[in-house]
Amino acid sequence: MTEIFTDLPEIDAETRRRLHARLVAAATEAGVIDVAYRTVDTPVGTLLLATTERGLVRVAYPSEDHAAVLEQLATRVSPRVLRVPARLDLAATELEEYFTGRRQLFDLPLDLQLSQGFRRTVLSHLTDIGYGATASYAEIAAAAGNPKAVRAVGSACATNPLPVVVPCHRVVRSDGTTGQYVGGADVKKALLRMEAAA
């Protein structure tokens, strides 16, 4: 009955690319892409970058599971999520410069909507820690106005939606050990080593 349609070939990759590009162009013009994303290859793994109209909203390590991160964005920001690499060209360039030692400060609009309350206050203090420097969890708790909230600083770092760009990797333990990291303890050490060497 359906033998006519059983051997239809797959829609080829070139056609998919062309149609996707058309959709992106039309949706951009209509202003209906709420979250645009792309991936970028770095020495610490492939990072997922996502942006809203307001700015960079998410940087995610592979260990966070990019598909799960996109679902989280769909739920918490908007389901109008599309892959639009061009919208993240600037962020990708700055990250590439950072990872090749040519950039110490990110100059990007940020959208911190995925972090709220005290955690967000903590994140706003992390950018004060300069390239190659570190601060302890206790120091950041004090700077954020709540010296006793050392563990809350830890969880703010662990849930940082913008790792690398908002430098939670520069927050270390008071005893001098590096401590945990959203991208893995080894990645944290690698970033600190890289910054120290530059």
Binding site: H20, Y37, L70, E71, A74, T75, P79, R80, L82
Partner: peptide, 15 residues
């Protein structure tokens, strides 16, 4: 259940 990212809809149903 929450909604999938729209990109996944395009990938799955586009063809």
């Amino acid at each position: 259940m929450s909604q999938q990212p729209f990109e996944a809809i395009v990938t799955e149903h586009g063809p």
